[in-house]
Design a protein around this nucleic acid. Structure first.
Length: 426
RNA sequence: GGAGAGAUGGCCGAGUAGGCUUAAGGCGCUCGCCUGCUAAGUGAGUGUGGGGCGAAAGCUCUACCGAGGGUUCGAAUCCCUCUCUCUCCGCCA
């Protein structure tokens, strides 16, 4: 959510921003709603002032034992007026908030203007794409042959877009999770958190999934609880409605959670394999920092995520999302895309974003500086570090051998009880 | 699930037969003073959101005592509903 005062005095900036993002949003009602709100507030506060003052007079008269009945009946009318205005206000405020909640964040000045993903500039590449002397197989073929991925039984248990991993398939998932958590806690200085996997609607609103993206969520029937689509939701909400001390900043959390997404609107996309599932594991990085540090924190957060791919020896590239491809709450986003040899393309494996104060305003997360009074909103950032399922896809496909076995990256073998090759077992 | 107790500022903690409460007092913090340094002492200041005035520093009004309703001229205080925490009992991985 943007600042009301900012929107009020920067209508032209907002309009240009909406155009660049490809949004069609009518803001014509904003000014009149805003003025209506302020005029109601002005008369309301004037009346309250009067009421407070006269109430003191009544108290004083009563203490002196005087008769106050005529003033009291006078104030009855004032109170009635106050109640009428109080009843009028919420509807106006709600409409104004509704409008504000649907305005996306202002892109960072370094974000290029573009229509869609085709306009995303590639920032850098890392690693060498392996030259296969055979036709590389897809991860689902590899996984089913090795007896570690079982999509048909998962469909029986739960339906499409689920996977059952067994034996080494379960172990390597756990190994990847532990490898990522250890790397981020020991090498990159993050604090590990294990949050609830179900959250209430306030939390979903705080990070922006509600009200706009309800369709993407699984809701628990009969409860105000949703399955989390990403650890970003519970972890960012850790500090909802808090005022942090500047000494605590930056706060860096790493969190493993399963993620649950309905994937409404992506029917027919990535229907096979692990790439797009209703449930997948993810290790997420979340930061809270001072406004002046968030540009740099985004760079280091992205580098931390890249570090995982580098240690696993998986080739990737980093793209910067253009205005047309940028998410609703983000001011700037780097996507890290890993190379998948079977499809011959780079596939998103991490998305690292700076939300500036956009999420913090909605979730009411502030901090106080040592000198100077008042509070400021923190900046929040997050990024996958990494999507575990897609990392497994990349490992299986990039490390496959002609005989159908898969070499385990060196960094991972300590987490695999020393196992260095996944082979067909009887 | 049953019975009881509770929720007050950054923290602790008073305050409920409604009105001199502008939410006492303490801790912490900030800025002074004082003393070789530290500690102690001492003086002042110190919540958040919103509105208005102002170039600004600031001034002023208003709301906020877990959340939401209600009673009243007036609610931290009385009534109702809900949420959460604690104690005991029951059930349970």
């Amino acid at each position: 959510m943007l600042d009301l005062k900012f929107v009020r005095s920067n209508q032209d900036v907002i309009a240009r921003m909406l155009r660049q993002r490809g949004y069609d949003l009518d803001l014509s009602g904003f000014r009149s709603l805003d003025e209506k709100r302020r005029s109601i507030l002005a008369s309301l506060e004037e009346l309250r002032y009067q009421r407070n003052k006269v109430s003191d007079d009544i108290a004083a008269m009563k203490r002196r034992g005087e008769d106050a009945s005529s003033i009291i009946s006078e104030m009855k009318a004032v109170s009635k007026e106050i109640r009428a205005l109080e009843a009028e206000l919420p509807a106006v405020v709600d409409q104004l908030n509704e409008l504000l909640m649907h305005i996306p964040n202002v892109p960072h000045e370094s974000v290029v203007v573009g229509k869609n993903a085709d306009d995303n500039p590639v920032i850098r590449r890392w690693g060498e794409i392996r030259d296969f002397d055979f036709d590389p197989a897809s991860h689902w073929e590899i996984g089913e042959k090795l007896n570690i991925l079982d999509f048909s039984r998962a469909a029986k248990i739960a339906g499409s877009r689920f996977c059952l991993q067994s034996g080494i398939g379960a172990t390597i998932e756990r190994a990847l999770i532990n490898f990522m958590l250890d790397t981020h806690t020991k090498r990159h200085g993050y604090t590990e958190v294990l949050p609830p996997f179900l959250v209430n609607s306030e939390s979903m609103t705080g990070t922006g999934q509600l009200p706009k993206f309800r369709e993407d969520l699984f809701k628990v029937d009969g409860w105000d609880l949703f399955l989390i689509p990403t650890a970003e939701v519970p972890v960012t909400n850790i500090h909802r409605d808090e005022i942090l001390s500047i000494d605590e900043l930056p706060i860096k959390y790493v969190s493993y959670t399963p993620c649950f997404r309905s994937e409404a609107g992506s029917w027919g996309k990535d229907t096979r394999g692990l790439v797009r599932q209703h449930q997948f594991n993810k290790v997420e990085l979340v930061k809270f920092c001072c406004p002046e540090d968030s540009d740099q924190e985004l760079e280091s957060l992205t580098a931390d995520a890249e570090g995982i791919l580098q240690r696993l020896g998986l080739p990737y590239r980093v793209v910067s999302l253009c205005t047309g491809d940028l998410g609703f709450s983000a001011a700037k986003t780097y996507d890290i895309e890993v190379w998948l040899p079977e499809q011959q393309l780079f596939k998103e494996i991490s998305s690292c974003s700076n939300f500036t104060d956009f999420q913090a305003r909605r979730a009411n997360i502030r901090f106080r500086r040592k000198k100077g009074r008042g509070t400021e909103l923190v900046h929040t950032l997050n990024g996958s570090g990494l999507a575990v399922g897609r990392t497994l896809v990349a490992v299986l496909e990039n490390y496959q051998q002609p005989d159908g076995s898969v070499v385990i990256p060196e960094a991972l073998t300590p987490y695999m009880n020393g196992l260095s090759v996944i082979d067909r077992r009887e």
